[in-house]
């Protein structure tokens, strides 16, 4: 089993709901808090999920894209083997990569090893924290079914995010990745992320250029 979150970039509007709901849940969650330095000055806090805004191409053929970026729960997670204390580990039963704060020495090597910049160092506790796939929600049997999913998936106002088991070919996530050419980030670095993104899927113009030309001509527009 490999739990994952798939984000449909064809639907993500960059609203950062997933970024805030992550903070909201986790700061009071089993792996929190997520501290904020100088909250009312030049604030600089911890986020396990950060949404990046990208622009590409030249005007007017510009693409604008939003990329929510949290732990990819990599199959070959490079953050795990580098950890001297085995504080960083990948759960065998569900593929979730976690940090055991009690044995983390705060050496930050895992942060350098992670290609994705999703691990964050907590200066106040001297440990590294990161997305837990909301393990404390998904395994909490006292919660209602709808709450037993990551906060960032539950909150997403465009339903761009889907949670599930990538190893189960019948799961929604596996099928989405398959059907929609799901891709991973920086595949060349070999971490084999479980987290996938679904590319844009533009709906083309329904009137062809030739038809337009014909109308321009005949009507003299």
């Amino acid at each position: 089993m490999q739990l994952t979150i798939i984000t449909d970039l064809n639907k993500c509007v960059g609203c950062k709901s997933c970024q805030v709901s992550c903070k909201e849940h986790n700061t009071s969650g089993a792996f929190g808090p997520l501290p904020d330095a100088n909250p009312y000055e030049e604030a600089d806090g911890m986020w396990w999920n950060r949404v990046v805004t990208m622009e590409s191409g030249e005007y007017p053929n510009t693409a604008v894209m939003y990329l929510p970026k949290a732990c990819m729960h990599c199959y070959d997670a490079p953050c795990v083997p580098v950890c001297p204390t085995k504080a960083s580990y990948k759960r065998e039963d569900n593929g979730v990569v976690l940090v055991d704060y009690d044995s983390c020495i705060g050496c930050q090597l895992c942060m350098w090893a992670c290609p994705y910049g999703v691990r964050e160092f907590d200066e106040t506790e001297g440990v590294v924290k990161k997305c837990t796939m909301c393990i404390d929600r998904i395994e909490d049997e006292s919660l209602a079914a709808e709450d037993r999913q990551p906060a960032c998936v539950q909150s997403c106002p465009t339903h761009a995010r889907t949670f599930g088991d990538l190893d189960d070919p019948t799961s929604e996530v596996a099928q989405l990745v398959h059907a929609r050419q799901g891709f991973t980030l920086l595949p060349e670095l070999g971490a084999r992320p479980a987290v996938h993104y679904l590319p844009r899927r533009p709906s083309p113009a329904i009137i062809s250029a030739e038809t337009v030309d014909a109308h321009m001509e005949s009507e003299g527009y």
Binding site: C15, S17, K23, E24, E146, Q154, C156, P157
Partner: peptide
Amino acid sequence: KGVWCAKGGA
């Protein structure tokens, strides 16, 4: 319908 935004959660 069950979703909430960044402001709402914050």
